[in-house]
């Protein structure tokens, strides 16, 4: 029986030669590259904007679930005339209510900080001449951002505790507990911001690794 199947396989291989040996490498590469580039052409979404959208989606979703950021997949698919945004999110585990609340609070704090930063920048713009923002500037900004975050939270806490001192002791204890929690928040923010600072670098690396990029340039120049 095995002899017969060996014989069949050899024969089948001979008759099918060329069909499977080449594999579908170059054709499917072309089709996939083309689909991606056409989606970008049709929607005017550049790879940079897509990457930004991806990282913002990660920020948003990770407030509610713990997800595998590496495997998160954002893609366009076309069904008829409709272009659909397909998001595949590998969830490691769902967060419990406390974690979600903490994450939302943390996010709100970050928004406050961002608003303060904008105000500060506006104030700076008034005093200083217009300068070009480079990467090192951005990094400095994000470092100072976390410091201001700590300060603002501390000042808020002290304010509220002052108000509460006039009331019951029991409530004051509660406030202390909240204050402790709030004091913990800036640490999380710090950690997060460090991650965010490093994240764009990772993204750059991955886009540089994109094997098509250099090829595209070669193709374009040879065609021109």
């Amino acid at each position: 029986m095995s002899l017969f199947s060996d014989l069949y396989n050899t024969l089948a291989k001979f008759f099918r030669n060329g069909e499977e040996q080449q594999g579908d490498a170059s054709k499917s590469v072309a089709t996939n590259r083309l689909k991606l580039v056409l989606m970008q052409d049709r929607t005017n979404l550049t790879p940079r904007i897509l990457e930004q959208m991806r990282s913002e989606l990660i920020d948003l979703l990770s407030r509610y679930v713990e997800l595998d950021k590496e495997l998160l997949d954002l893609n366009f698919e076309q069904e008829g005339d409709q272009v659909a945004l397909m998001l595949s999110i590998p969830v490691i585990r769902a967060k419990d209510e406390e974690e979600i609340d903490a994450a939302i609070k943390e996010h709100e704090e970050m928004l406050k900080v961002a608003a303060q930063k904008v105000e500060a920048e506006e104030a700076e713009d008034e005093t200083t001449e217009e300068g070009t923002e480079n990467e090192s500037d951005l990094k400095e900004n994000s470092d100072s951002e976390s410091e201001t975050a700590e300060q603002s939270v501390e000042s808020e806490v002290s304010e509220t505790s002052e108000l509460m001192d006039e009331e019951d002791k029991a409530e004051a204890e509660k406030v202390d507990a909240i204050a402790k929690e709030l004091n913990d928040v800036p640490k999380i923010i710090k950690k997060k911001e460090k991650k965010q600072v490093s994240a764009p670098e990772e993204m750059n690396v991955s886009s540089n690794n994109n094997p098509f990029k250099s090829e595209d340039k070669v193709e374009a120049s040879s065609e021109n």
């Binding site: 060329g18 069909e19 080449q22 490498a25 054709k27 499917s28 072309a30 089709t31 076309q78 008829g80």
Partner: peptide
């Protein structure tokens, strides 16, 4: 070339351009 999967087939192209 289409047979050896080195060129996009008619279906591939029509599927993309619709």
């Amino acid at each position: 070339l289409i047979k050896s999967n080195e060129m996009m087939s008619v279906d591939d192209v029509v599927g993309i351009l619709e």
